[in-house]
Amino acid sequence: MAELCQVKRFFVPFAQLRQQPTIVVDSVANGAVLTLAHWRGAATPEALRDDTSAGSVLRALHQPQTPGLQAAAVTANHFDVDGFVGVWALLHPGLALQHEELLHLVAVLGDFRELDARHPLADQALQLVCWLNAEEKARFYEPFGAPARRRREDEASAEKFAWFLPRFAEVLANPESGRAAWEPEYRRVKQAQQVMQAAQTKWVAYPEIGLQVIHTPQPPPYYALFGPTAGFDIVLSLYEGQRYELEYKYTTWIDLASRPTLPRLSLAPLAARLNTLEASGRRWVCDGITDTGPLLRLQGQKLSKTQRYADPDARPIYPSSIAPEVIEAEVLAFFQTGYAGIQPRRYWTWAEVKAASSGSHVVAG
């Protein structure tokens, strides 16, 4: 560890990648001396694979002889919680390993929106993520918001790293120092968690297809909705007033290391089937298979990527004419049929994912 701490690292904007030997975090790029990313097909060394990119960084800090880890420059092509934690950890390896378990929780919550509320560090992890979220929105722009400002994310995000990197350690050591920023979202999530754990919310699991069905009165923040869904990759949310959304979690966009998964299926055939049943005047629409978190929902005004990434309680969800038990049955039948003959495994390529969606059994594991 002493040898590793002697490396004085610094962050460089993504465009400066090739100006010096550079470690790339939560991104992929030609010319990187070391890639530490969970993106599908990323060149992360096998021994360093982890569910999150920050997790790969933390693994690397335990293996200081990893080729490329001696490079001083670090970069990422976007700013998000997981990527930021990974970059920060490389710049502050001693502190990162002191807080390793907490940083793992922060990265998982930031990327997958999953958090075990019973974990002794859960509250602190939630506070840190809420602080990052609040300061990012207040001082810069919301996630996926760069194009609307006619900026490239890889360029604009460098300003976020410049602001957050020297300030994160203080809030990590003393969350109270950031309370003014993190408290509003934190309280909103905590209140929603109580509803999700109460009798008015019903959870139905279909582990053989990775589907979690949630019956709950109102759309909650993602950290409450997805919090208890670890181990599942598809979430069907059924709200009062016959309002519904189905989502593939980000766990099926990346190379998940901890467990096997089923490949994504195109939701277009399911949308078409629901449109034959829908009598509300609205149509069911879905995002493409390579979207980071494809949604299936009734269409109103088309949502931007920023709106789709935002919490369910921050976007309109329209009432359907289809009864909730019918929706659940149709979704269940779709995935049971689509996954027939396909076995879960790790590290699907996008070509294999698309082949599975087209009905090819060549990719059956």
Results as ranks from 00 to 15, higher is better:
residue 233 D to V: 07
residue 218 Q to S: 13
residue 59 R to H: 11
residue 62 H to F: 06
residue 138 A to D: 04
residue 250 Y to P: 00
residue 232 F to K: 12
residue 78 H to Q: 15
residue 145 G to R: 04
residue 302 K to M: 14
residue 195 V to T: 07
residue 16 Q to H: 07
residue 132 L to Y: 04
residue 222 Y to H: 01
residue 173 A to Y: 13
residue 168 F to K: 01
residue 227 G to K: 00
residue 10 F to A: 04
residue 355 A to I: 02
residue 193 Q to E: 00
residue 323 A to W: 04
residue 225 L to N: 03
residue 184 P to S: 09
residue 248 Y to L: 12
residue 347 Y to E: 15
residue 281 G to P: 08
residue 342 I to F: 06
residue 123 D to M: 08
residue 144 F to G: 01
residue 120 P to S: 13
residue 305 K to E: 13
residue 114 E to A: 05
residue 115 L to H: 04
residue 352 E to F: 08
residue 259 R to W: 03
residue 177 S to R: 13
residue 49 R to S: 00
residue 108 V to E: 02
residue 209 I to R: 07
residue 210 G to V: 00
residue 227 G to P: 02
residue 153 E to N: 11
residue 62 H to S: 14
residue 1 M to C: 10
residue 326 V to C: 10
residue 288 G to D: 08
residue 309 Y to M: 10
residue 250 Y to K: 09
residue 312 P to E: 01
residue 71 A to E: 14
residue 126 L to M: 15
residue 19 Q to K: 15
residue 352 E to W: 03
residue 197 Q to F: 11
residue 5 C to P: 10
residue 298 L to P: 05
residue 188 R to A: 04
residue 202 K to G: 02
residue 229 T to N: 07
residue 5 C to E: 13
residue 323 A to Y: 11
residue 32 A to T: 00
residue 143 P to I: 03
residue 226 F to R: 06
residue 67 P to G: 13
residue 303 L to A: 11
residue 158 A to R: 02
residue 121 L to E: 12
residue 294 P to C: 09
residue 3 E to A: 13
residue 238 L to A: 10
residue 362 V to L: 05
residue 364 A to C: 15
residue 303 L to T: 04
residue 303 L to D: 08
residue 113 R to W: 00
residue 137 K to V: 04
residue 94 G to P: 04
residue 274 L to F: 02
residue 335 F to V: 12
residue 269 P to S: 10
residue 189 V to C: 03
residue 363 V to M: 15
residue 123 D to W: 01
residue 290 T to D: 14
residue 112 F to S: 00
residue 59 R to W: 04
residue 282 R to K: 15
residue 283 R to H: 07
residue 280 S to T: 11
residue 43 A to F: 01
residue 200 Q to V: 07
residue 300 G to W: 13
residue 90 L to S: 09
residue 298 L to Q: 05
residue 227 G to M: 02
residue 331 V to Q: 06
residue 286 C to R: 01
residue 64 P to H: 07
residue 137 K to A: 05
residue 354 K to E: 09
residue 83 G to F: 00
residue 126 L to R: 10
residue 186 Y to E: 01
residue 215 H to S: 10
residue 308 R to V: 08
residue 295 L to I: 03
residue 336 Q to P: 00
residue 69 L to C: 09
residue 351 A to Q: 14
residue 270 L to R: 14
residue 327 I to E: 07
residue 217 P to M: 12
residue 277 L to K: 11
residue 166 P to M: 02
residue 135 E to Q: 10
residue 155 E to Q: 15
residue 61 L to F: 09
residue 365 G to N: 15
residue 209 I to T: 12
residue 56 S to R: 02
residue 142 E to S: 14
residue 278 E to T: 12
residue 339 Y to E: 06
residue 304 S to N: 02
residue 351 A to S: 12
residue 253 W to G: 03
residue 15 A to H: 12
residue 131 W to C: 01
residue 146 A to Q: 06
residue 60 A to V: 06
residue 218 Q to V: 09
residue 76 A to P: 06
residue 56 S to G: 09
residue 354 K to F: 06
residue 299 Q to P: 12
